[in-house]
Design a protein around this nucleic acid. Structure first.
Lengths: 231, 231
DNA sequence: ACCTGAACACCGTTCAAGT
DNA sequence: ACCTGAACACCGTTCAAGT
């Protein structure tokens, strides 16, 4: 079940940027961002650091490439349906990818703000923006509507992923949620009245259904501001 | 204008957690997250690393404390007005704080997902959640509506902050936006048709007005789903 | 109780040298 | 063109020792 420690085996294949990125994703999946190290990567690929640096400029670029590879894969499936259904499909695709690769959320949020010229931002903007167009939003508001959608999708999916990130996917996930809810309920009743009341709501939250409720809230706003569209 | 290099001067005051956090914020403001180092911090405070570790458990805790201090300050002002106006005020307060402390965005996003039991998440949830309540949203939907609002506010503000982060606030900001827009316009016309069309929209975007347009989109969704509220 | 500072284990990155 | 591996500068953190 665990990714295990395979090393120095397939020395037959030559090193390539692709194989490096593939190994990077495996390391990230297995141990999170701190698990990706040139030392470990070097051992896994049975080479020296210089070999990796010949194919990749630096660690930042490697993280961008790993992120882009996973996102491209997550957005590859072409859905067909009403614009609303397609938005759901794209959002769930990203949700699932982040759930399967918990390190992805932080990388996406960082790269979105730090290097919007990189490959990842356009990929996500295009997938969502196309459906926003199809909803009948006027062109000058595409960017606003798409931005709201994108930030919610990534933020909420990231929050969800944190829950499964701890350890085993099932037992600890509920435990993590319960611990968070408890922390909120222990807050000062006067200063944090609303948060305390939201805690119970939060305890059984964070699955796909709750996630889509947020999407539909945004879509309701779109429909209200731009009537005549076809959701 | 620059924060400059003051060091080893005020040795009179004793070391305290407060002074350490204060110095940490200064270093983060001056040089971003990579500028906060125990070596530099140690020099600035004219002590050894052991002294800092006596007041603070580790670097993560120091970042949480620095983030919390800045956010608490940003949310301190009590606004009065319609729920919609108050949501605007809270959102702009966070927007301004992130603009003034560009490292804040990444920290908020990380802490939101990695440690929602920490002090920062409840602070933001409470500020926004209280106004969501006032909008007339039924209790079982407070969390959804507040989440959408929160993720958009932090995501969009973070994206905006990246623009001023580069160097000088004025000249380079427009330059950064233009470079991003150009990168998008250079994309493949078939695969990225919508992103290319959004590029021009994006070029003069990212100020307060555009930011608030996203907020109003969410509020329109709230009003549509829960009529009878008073925005 | 609070601080000192040398030491430890580790990191990303470079670069002369090989093939 | 592609790879090796020792070395460099730096990091967060620890801990015996001081006051």
């Amino acid at each position: 079940m665990a990714t295990g420690t395979r090393r120095a085996q397939r020395r037959t294949e030559a090193l390539s940027r692709e194989r490096i990125v593939e190994a990077a994703v495996e390391l990230l999946d297995a141990a999170g961002e701190s698990g990706l190290t040139f030392r470990v990567l070097t051992e896994r690929l049975a080479t020296g650091p210089g070999a990796i640096y010949w194919h990749v400029a630096n660690k930042r670029e490697l993280l961008v490439a790993a992120t882009d590879a996973v996102v491209a894969d997550a957005l590859a499936a072409r859905s067909t349906g009403s614009p609303r259904e397609e938005v759901h499909a794209v959002a769930l695709g990203l949700f699932s990818a982040i759930d399967a690769h918990p390190w992805l959320a932080a990388q996406l949020l960082l790269q979105l703000s730090r290097s919007p010229g990189g490959p990842v931002t356009p990929r996500i903007l295009e997938s969502l923006g196309r459906r926003v167009r199809a909803l009948g939003v006027p062109e000058e508001h595409w960017f606003t509507a798409t931005s709201v959608l994108m930030h919610y999708v990534l933020g909420a999916a990231g929050q969800n992923a944190a829950n499964s990130q701890v350890a085993e996917p099932d037992a600890d996930r509920a435990e993590f949620l319960a611990a968070t809810a408890q922390a909120w309920e222990a807050l000062d009743p006067e200063e944090y009245e609303t948060t305390r009341l939201m805690a119970s709501q939060m305890r059984e939250h964070n699955d796909r259904e709750q996630f889509l409720a947020g999407i539909d809230l945004v879509l309701a706003g779109v429909a209200a501001l731009y009537p005549g569209g076809r959701a």
